[in-house]
């Protein structure tokens, strides 16, 4: 506990870095996954291709991706952009299927009514399908958030500063307290992410709490 208090400044700085490395890709991944999921939901053939490809992306080990990206992108190995891009890839991999499922889950008669009322494809997506898919997408986003927080810590192996540093450093120095601090900090960060997503989802979906009067 004293160790944690003595190093509070360092812990918070690394936590902020960790939140950035895990959080920004979450937003970027969502922005990319929504149009991909929309395409997958509209075209059954495209769905198979897209979901298989994105599913495969998730199986690439993170360390390999962190090391493979710099030569591919022409970035420096220590640049945190590599981590951002790698985490975005994982987020897209997780969310494309969720978005597609969420958009397809809209009730048939609701969709039919929307078409019959003269909504064009895009307007219907924005005004009807997407808002109705929010609960499903939020659930997927929560999984991706936890997964991102966890995977980002691996980046300490390539020297990117974040909470994972306490795990590698504590292990190297045979100092379990430091490892525990790293683990607890990661957990807390994941909880904060989860909470933010849940609150956002609640704000966006007041109708899901409307129960039969």
């Amino acid at each position: 506990m004293t160790w944690a208090l003595d190093h509070l400044g360092d812990i918070l700085a690394r936590a902020a870095q960790h939140a950035w490395l895990a959080g920004l890709p979450l937003v970027l991944g969502l922005v990319i996954a929504v149009p991909l999921g929309w395409l997958a939901a509209r075209q059954p053939r495209l769905r198979a291709v897209l979901l298989t490809t994105t599913g495969l992306l998730y199986t690439i080990p993170s360390l390999a991706l962190f090391i493979l990206l710099p030569p591919l992108l022409g970035t420096k190995i220590l640049d945190s952009i590599n981590v951002i891009i790698a985490m975005t890839v994982y987020t897209v991999a997780l969310l494309t299927r969720t978005v597609a499922d969420g958009l397809s889950s809209v009730d048939g008669s609701t969709r039919q009514a929307a078409v019959a009322m003269g909504y064009g494809a895009f307007a219907r997506f924005r005004a009807v399908d997407l808002p109705l898919a929010v609960p499903v997408i939020a659930a997927g986003l929560r999984v991706a958030a936890v997964s991102n927080v966890s995977i980002v810590s691996v980046a300490s192996l390539i020297g990117i500063s974040q909470l994972g540093y306490f795990l590698t450093d504590g292990y190297a120095r045979s100092y379990p307290t430091e490892v525990w601090v790293g683990i607890v900090a990661c957990l807390l960060l994941a909880l904060v992410f989860d909470l933010v997503i849940q609150v956002a989802s609640r704000v966006l979906t007041p109708w899901t709490r409307a129960v039969a009067a």
């Binding site: 009730d107 039919q112 009514a113 003269g118 109705l132």
Partner: peptide, 22 residues
């Protein structure tokens, strides 16, 4: 125009097909 045509026709279906989020 298909959107214009549809907006000029009232449409009622079984189970109403209301928008649950509105």
């Amino acid at each position: 125009d298909v959107a214009e045509l549809r907006r000029g026709i009232g449409y009622v279906i079984q189970h109403a097909g209301l928008f649950p989020h509105r």
